[in-house]
Design a protein around this nucleic acid. Sequence first.
DNA 1: CGCGATTTGTGCACGTCTTCACAAGCGCCT
DNA 2: AGGCGCTTGTGAAGACGTGCACAAATCGCG
Lengths: 246, 246
Amino acid sequence: MSQHRPGSTSGPAGAVPALPDLPEATVARLPEYLRALHHCAETGYETVSSEGLAAAAGVNSAKLRKDLSHLGSYGTRGVGYDVALLIDQIEYVLGLTQRRAVALVGVGNLGHALAGYDGFASRGFHVVALFDADPATIGERIHGLQVRHIDELPAVAAETAIAIGVIATPAAAAQAVADQLVAAGVTSILNFAPCVLSVPPNVDVRKVDLAIELQILSFHEHRKSTLTALPGGRAAGTSGQEAVGS
Amino acid sequence: MSQHRPGSTSGPAGAVPALPDLPEATVARLPEYLRALHHCAETGYETVSSEGLAAAAGVNSAKLRKDLSHLGSYGTRGVGYDVALLIDQIEYVLGLTQRRAVALVGVGNLGHALAGYDGFASRGFHVVALFDADPATIGERIHGLQVRHIDELPAVAAETAIAIGVIATPAAAAQAVADQLVAAGVTSILNFAPCVLSVPPNVDVRKVDLAIELQILSFHEHRKSTLTALPGGRAAGTSGQEAVGS
DNA sequence: CGCGATTTGTGCACGTCTTCACAAGCGCCT
DNA sequence: AGGCGCTTGTGAAGACGTGCACAAATCGCG
C-alpha cells in the first residue's frame, strides 16, 4: 500500500518492469479478475478479500490467491487486496495501459457486430480499421468507420501500428487474410473463422468458434438425457462454470 | 467398416448406446476433429491417418489418437480412420444426430449477428426463437424470425423444447435472463455477457467473452514487446494455436 | 503492549492432461 | 504364404493445474 510503483514483481530493486512468467491458465483468468475488480470499484469497495473476489469471478479462492501471488504480493494479510492497486497491477501485466489498435477483417454478419461491440472499447481496445474483400461492402460506413479493401491493409498498417488483427471472414478466406495480416506485421490474431491457421512461430493466434461451444453443450445435454438416472450426477457447480480459455 | 452400429463403445454387446466417460479436454476437441473430418470428406478422402487429421485439426497426432481411442476402436491399423464412419461416431457422441433447438435472448449488436450466423445451422443447431426486453425491438423480424418479449419465454418453451439458451444481453440483465431460462427448463446456457452466472448444479454454462480473448492476446503482445531480446523465445508453434476451449 | 481474529501466501499432495515410445495389428507386394 | 512397411492403440513418464491446509503477517482492541 505504501509503494505504488507497478512492475516491481521479480526484479531485485524493481527497476525493470520485468513480466513474471505467468502460467497460461492464470493469464486466461486475469481478465475475469479485472472485470470483477472493476465491479467492486464501482460498488464502492476499497479492499476485497480473496474470498469475495473469487466469488465475483466465479473461481476458487485458493486458486485466485495463487494466481495473484504470481504477480507479486499486492495483498495485505488480515485485510485483503487494495482494489485500485490490483486493477492497476493487472492492467499493467496484461498490457492494457497502452491503448491497442485492432483491425477487423470481414464485415459480414459477425464482423458487423464486432465492429460495434462496446466491450472492446471499454477494455482499452480501439477498432481502427475495417477491411473486406467484397466490393459491395467497400465504402460502407459502420459505427463511424469506413470499410476499406483488404489490399489497403499494408498502407493502413504503415501509418497506424496494428496490435491485433481480428478475422471474421468465411473459413475459405481466413488463411489468406492471416497471411496478409502477418505480412503487414501483425503478431496477434483473433480468429473467428472455423478453421486452423498456419502462422509463423512468433505470431499468436487465438480461436473463437461459436459453433464449437454449442457442440460442447450438446454433448453434455446428450449425456444428461441418456443418463436420466442418478440425479446427483456430476455437473457444473453452482457458480462453477467452465471458462472458455481453460 | 463391417459393423456400422453407432454407440458400441463400452457395453458388452453394444446393446446400450452408453456414452463413455470422456475427459473434458477431449470433448472440447471433438468438434474440431469433426470439422476437419467434414473437410476431408468434401475433399474426397475416404480414410485419413491420425497424422493427417491431426494436422488438419491443429493438434498433436498422439493426442488425437488418444482422444479417438476413448470413443472406441474406429481406426484400422496400417490404413487410418474411415472418414464417414468417424463422422457418424463423433456426431453421435456429441448428440448432433438430433437437431437441437436454440433460443437466443438479446438481439442487440451481437445477438443480431448470432441470429443469422450460418455456422449454427450448418452444425445442426436451429435458432427457433428470439427474445428481448426492449419494447423497441419486439416484433422486429430478423433472418425470418420475429423478436418476442422475454416474458413469452415460458409459452414458447412449453410448445418447443429448448435445448440451449444463448444469452447476448448486457451484463446487467444476464442473471435475470439466466434465471428465466432455467425456470423454463433450459439446462444448457451459452453466455456472451461479461459476468458470472449463478445456476443450479444441473445446468451447464459456457461463457464466451470476446474482450477476454483480446486481453489474453494483449498480454502476449506486451510480453513480446518487453522481451525484445532472445528471438527464440517461447511462442505458439507453427500450426500450434491455443484453442479456446483448452 | 500483547492477544486474538482475520486473511494472505505457499508447500504439498492429488488429479488431469500431454507426450513419447513401442507393441500389436493390418494390408500389400513378392 | 511370408515378410515388410505403415498405422493404430496404449502404457508410462513427465508437465501442468488444482485444492487443501497451515504458517506468517497484519489490524484492531482491550
